[in-house]
């Protein structure tokens, strides 16, 4: 039987780095996709996923596992949320410089996979343009519950707030999103069609 997250975590804290490596293999995909949905950039998401695990290790005293499955994933996504939020608040000029650098370094590769990734990034960037108009805490709860499919209790662990707060934020987020879509419906439809 596979070891639980808690067992692997204990192994890692006890000095067995391989335990943490197994946790990385287990949850890297979820964290990677979560990070992509916050950045609209697959390469940045890959870096962010590694960073999330490193930060999680440094904050290992604060780790929280889910009650039922003993999964560490919700907490990891919480770490990712904070990390990516701080990155978003970072210096815009630095980000622009990095973007220019990346653009200059990009080598043309017309493989199917690359085209698919670029298409993903464009589509996600459009979605984020709408999402960014939501208050930060509503955006976070939507990203966790709607996109990463966390249960309310799991999102509560990720955001370190009570379950009731998750419910109310999610409800408000849906209302705000509905208003945004109605207000910008034409614009959104055009984007959806083009992507």
């Amino acid at each position: 039987m596979a070891e639980t997250d808690r067992q692997l975590w204990d192994r890692a804290v006890g000095g067995d780095g391989a335990g943490f490596g197994l946790l990385f293999e287990r949850h890297a995909r979820s964290v990677y996709n979560f990070a992509f949905r916050q950045t609209a950039n697959w390469a940045a998401a890959e870096d962010a996923a590694s960073e999330v695990f490193l930060v999680a290790w440094r904050r290992r005293q604060e780790v929280v596992f889910t009650n039922e499955s003993g999964s560490v994933l919700p907490w990891l996504l919480g770490v990712a949320t904070n990390l990516l939020r701080n990155a978003r608040r970072g210096d815009r000029r630095a980000k622009a410089a990095i973007a220019r650098l990346n653009a200059n370094e990009a080598h043309p590769d017309f493989s199917e996979d690359l085209i698919g990734r670029l298409s993903d990034e464009a589509q996600m960037a459009d979605v984020l343009r709408v999402f960014d108009r939501l208050p930060e805490h509503e955006r976070d709860v939507l990203a966790l519950c709607a996109w990463s499919k966390l249960e309310y209790e799991e999102a509560a662990i990720a955001l370190a707030v009570p379950v009731g707060t998750v419910r109310s934020r999610l409800s408000r987020a849906r209302s705000h999103l509905r208003e945004l879509v109605e207000t910008n419906g034409h614009e959104l439809d055009e984007r959806t069609v083009t992507t």
């Binding site: 995909r29 996709n33 992509f36 949905r37 298409s119 589509q123 996600m124 979605v127 939507l142 959104l188």
Partner: peptide, 12 residues
């Protein structure tokens, strides 16, 4: 949220 479709998940 259906009006805002997001790309499918990818493997690391």
């Amino acid at each position: 949220l259906d009006l805002l479709p997001i790309p499918a998940e990818r493997d690391f």
